[in-house]
Simulated assay, not measured.
Amino acid sequence: MAKKGKRYTQAAELIASAVEDAEGGLPLDTAADLIKKTARAKFDESVDIDIRLGVDPRHADQMVRGSVALPHGTGKDVRVLVLTNEGQQGDARDAGADLVGLDDFVDKIQNDGFTDFDVMIATPDVMPKIGRLGRVLGPRGLMPNPKSGTVTTDVAAAVKAVKSGQIDFRVDKTGIVHTSIGKSSFSTEQIHENALAFIKEIVRLRPAAAKGAYVKSVTLSTTMGPAVPVDRSVGASAAR
């Protein structure tokens, strides 16, 4: 087993001390503050959130998938590809899209495996051409989808939303939703508000078929740091 570094060990000890008397995890604002204190890498670490849900994603009626605009963005420069016909390509460029086109990018993705972008946005009329790219885009989570707002007739608005901090998410096969909600350089308040906005959207999307406890656990972590457990009752609070 690999030996943990000194920074990681110190961070883990600080977290263990904080949660020692906290049954079920820390309040979200306290966890956000602790994340700041334990981010000790020499680069601006990502702040991630993991939520374990009481759903079975094997059943379509228990799938949790959507998008949410984080109040303070993600702190990342998101590279956006827009596939649409010439009529809307100018609007996409004006809105800040990094890559814009159609047939040239479809061929590049299909034949060369091109995936040098973070989000793909497409208009409904070109989806028949994009459908055959699922084998390349699907495993990477890059396939545009109406539920996440990446298949739309208003590409300009979609580009602006993604660039300003909108993120897409989807529960994995183990029932966990994982995403980045900011950077360690964010203030405690920014991390807290981004996390709360994400949790609220997860709670809002609770499937009717989900029975029993819906939010089973919530943790915050940084790229190089240990996880901080959050009181899962934050899910009930977010629903109010």
Rank of each mutant, 00 (worst) to 15 (best):
3 K>L: 11
5 G>I: 01
7 R>C: 03
9 T>G: 01
10 Q>N: 11
17 S>D: 05
25 G>M: 01
26 L>R: 06
27 P>E: 09
28 L>T: 05
31 A>G: 07
32 A>S: 12
32 A>P: 03
36 K>D: 06
37 K>N: 05
37 K>Q: 11
37 K>L: 07
39 A>N: 03
39 A>S: 08
41 A>L: 05
42 K>Y: 14
46 S>I: 02
48 D>K: 10
54 G>W: 03
57 P>L: 11
57 P>M: 10
57 P>T: 10
58 R>W: 13
58 R>M: 12
62 Q>R: 07
64 V>M: 02
66 G>E: 03
69 A>P: 07
70 L>K: 00
72 H>E: 09
73 G>Y: 08
76 K>A: 14
82 V>I: 09
83 L>C: 09
84 T>R: 04
86 E>K: 11
93 R>G: 08
97 A>R: 01
97 A>Q: 00
98 D>N: 03
98 D>T: 04
101 G>L: 06
102 L>V: 09
103 D>N: 14
103 D>A: 14
104 D>K: 15
104 D>Y: 12
105 F>E: 07
108 K>Y: 08
112 D>H: 13
115 T>L: 08
115 T>F: 04
117 F>Q: 04
117 F>N: 01
117 F>G: 01
123 T>C: 08
125 D>L: 09
125 D>Y: 05
129 K>Q: 15
133 L>C: 04
137 L>K: 06
138 G>Y: 09
143 M>F: 14
143 M>V: 12
145 N>S: 13
145 N>H: 13
146 P>H: 07
146 P>G: 10
149 G>E: 01
150 T>I: 09
150 T>M: 05
151 V>A: 09
154 D>F: 08
155 V>K: 00
159 V>L: 08
163 K>S: 07
164 S>H: 10
166 Q>L: 10
169 F>V: 09
169 F>T: 07
170 R>S: 15
174 T>Y: 15
175 G>Y: 12
177 V>A: 13
180 S>P: 10
181 I>F: 10
182 G>V: 09
184 S>A: 15
186 F>P: 04
188 T>M: 09
192 H>F: 12
192 H>Q: 12
195 A>M: 07
195 A>I: 08
203 V>G: 05
204 R>N: 12
206 R>F: 03
209 A>S: 06
210 A>D: 05
214 Y>R: 04
215 V>P: 05
216 K>G: 02
218 V>R: 03
219 T>D: 06
220 L>C: 01
220 L>K: 00
229 P>M: 02
231 D>Q: 12
233 S>Q: 15
237 S>E: 15
239 A>D: 14
